[in-house]
């Protein structure tokens, strides 16, 4: 059962609203950053590698 009588009461959290909501917001942002960081790193790496291989092909250079 929902513990709060109204949306306003839910947001206020009986006076503890700021503590609760800031905690959850900062956690959410941290988790989002944790997921995005490796995705961006991977994308950047693959992009650099495909650039390198293309320039290697044009200059006739063999890379192992």
């Amino acid at each position: 059962m929902f513990q709060f009588e109204s949306l306003a009461a839910f947001i206020a959290m009986g006076g503890h609203g700021p503590y609760v909501w800031i905690s959850y917001a900062v956690t959410l942002l941290t988790l989002i950053w944790l997921v995005i960081a490796p995705i961006r790193g991977r994308r950047r790496l693959l992009k650099n590698l495909s650039h390198q291989s293309r320039s290697a092909v044009t200059s006739g250079e063999e890379r192992s």
Binding site: M13, H16, Y19, V20, S23
Partner: peptide, 10 residues
């Protein structure tokens, strides 16, 4: 009170 709800992430 409601501050304990932080437990669910802490």
């Amino acid at each position: 009170g409601n501050s304990f709800r932080i437990i669910y992430i802490h």
